[in-house]
Structure formats: structure tokens, C-alpha cells
């Protein structure tokens, strides 16, 4: 897995034309990458560049050599995305159906699809809820479901946008443990800084610029200085 972000800037179109990213250059190969920054620093936009949800207005983003602007579909097959609010991510009415949604075009027979879904739900401790309505799960369970729904298609990279912001500390820590054991590479943005302590590399965004790129300890220290100075 290799991500190249080359001279990327982004301006949201429209009457207010906000510039949210400017002159970002970075190459990512590590398995666990953290992203931190204040609200509005550009980190959400940066994450959405990685699976082609947003095509940059300047520069280019490549995932394993695939340009996200030209090969969006292939890129999305490799790169799964978890949003902050699992409620807007759950598509199907029941837990098992939602996880199975990602397999609907896999060509696998129905019973094999179900078996794969059940194995993954078992792994996430959701097997007992397989046929329950997804909207009745707890917040932590919903976020697990959202992750399972993405992981069923076996992406090589999982991008997560503040997956613990809506959760209590116990559930946030639980998601942290689950993330640590995941098979694919992970790019995770969060305000829960302790989740990043064991990560390989942490990027700090401020005002649309990449202002620090370091090991977790020094990067988090830089971020704290920035926040306390402002």
C-alpha cells in the first residue's frame, strides 16, 4: 500500500469558495497513520482525498499508482471508509443485511455470502444481533457494524474519520483495540489522541497546511503547543 499526495490543494466550489487544503505533499507507506488537527483544519478533506470521495482541485492523489481522479472505482475497491456517524453509513435495515450489502455484486452464492457475514459478525461480537434492526444497536455496536460493513469487501486500506467522537470513553477504547488488530493498513483521524500512541506516523494539519509529520510523541506535542498557543 502506497499513497502519494502531490502538490494537493483544494477549494470547495460555490459562492463562498473556501480553501481547505494548500500545498500538501506526502507519501504514506506505514500500516498505522494518525491524522490530527483542529476542527476545520482540513483533515476531513484530506481523508476524503484518499478514496476519491473528493477529487482535489489542484495536484493529484495516487493509491498504489492509481490516480483517484481517473480510477475512482478501482481506488474505492482498495480503500474502505468509516465515517464519524455510523447512522448515516448504515444502509440496510438489519445488521446482517448491512454487512452483506458489500457482497451483493461479488457473485458468491447467497449461503456463502451469509457465511462470510456471520464469520465477520462473530469476530466483532455482533453475531447475536445478526437479524436485529441495525438502528436499535448501541453507539459502540453501530460503529463496529459500520467497520464490519466496510471490511467485508477486504480493502487494503481503511480510512476512518473520527470514528470515536460520538462514543463514550469505554467504547472509544474498545474501537481503539479493534483498530489495532485490523488486517488492512489504517489512516485514522481523531481527537482522542491516546488512540494514536502506538501508531507508526502522525500528521498534523492546521489551517489547510500539513504542519507536522512525525512519530506520535513529537507530533502530538506539536499539536498541543499549537492548540494552547491559539
Amino acid at each position: 500500500m502506497k499513497i502519494d499526495v502531490v502538490d494537493v490543494g483544494h477549494v470547495y466550489p460555490g459562492p463562498s469558495s473556501r480553501r481547505v487544503l494548500d500545498g500538501v505533499n506526502v507519501a504514506l507507506t506505514e500500516r498505522r497513520i494518525g491524522i490530527i488537527g483542529a476542527n476545520g483544519s482540513g483533515k476531513s478533506t484530506f481523508l476524503r482525498l484518499l478514496n476519491g470521495l473528493i477529487v482535489p482541485s489542484e495536484g493529484r492523489v495516487e493509491v498504489d499508482g492509481l490516480d483517484t481522479a481517473k480510477k475512482a472505482r478501482e481506488v474505492r475497491k482498495k480503500v474502505g471508509f468509516c465515517f464519524t456517524d455510523p447512522d448515516s453509513q448504515i444502509i440496510m435495515p438489519t445488521v446482517a443485511e448491512d454487512v452483506g450489502f458489500g457482497l451483493r455484486k461479488s457473485g458468491l452464492p447467497k449461503d456463502e455470502q451469509r457465511a462470510k457475514v456471520m464469520a465477520l459478525l462473530e469476530h466483532f461480537g455482533l453475531a447475536g444481533h445478526a437479524d436485529h434492526p441495525a438502528h436499535l444497536l448501541s453507539g459502540g455496536q453501530k460503529q463496529l457494524l459500520a467497520m464490519a460493513s466496510v471490511l467485508i469487501t477486504e480493502p487494503t486500506l481503511l480510512v476512518m474519520d473520527e470514528p470515536t467522537t460520538l462514543l463514550d470513553l469505554r467504547n472509544a477504547a474498545m474501537i481503539g483495540r479493534v483498530v489495532a488488530e485490523l488486517e488492512p493498513a489504517v489512516v485514522l483521524a481523531t481527537h482522542h489522541l491516546y488512540l494514536l500512541e502506538s501508531f507508526d506516523r502522525v500528521l498534523v494539519f492546521e489551517g489547510g497546511h500539513l504542519v507536522a509529520d512525525d512519530a506520535p510523541g513529537p507530533a502530538i506535542a506539536t499539536y498541543r503547543r499549537l492548540m494552547e498557543a491559539a
Partner: peptide
Amino acid sequence: RQADALGESLVARGVDD
């Protein structure tokens, strides 16, 4: 706003295939 978020996650989950 909810529809925007849902639309984004539909794209992320490959509905436009």
C-alpha cells in the same frame, strides 16, 4: 445534511458501480 452524509457513504460503499 443527513442526505449528504448518506449519499457520501453510498459512494464510499460502491453504490455507483
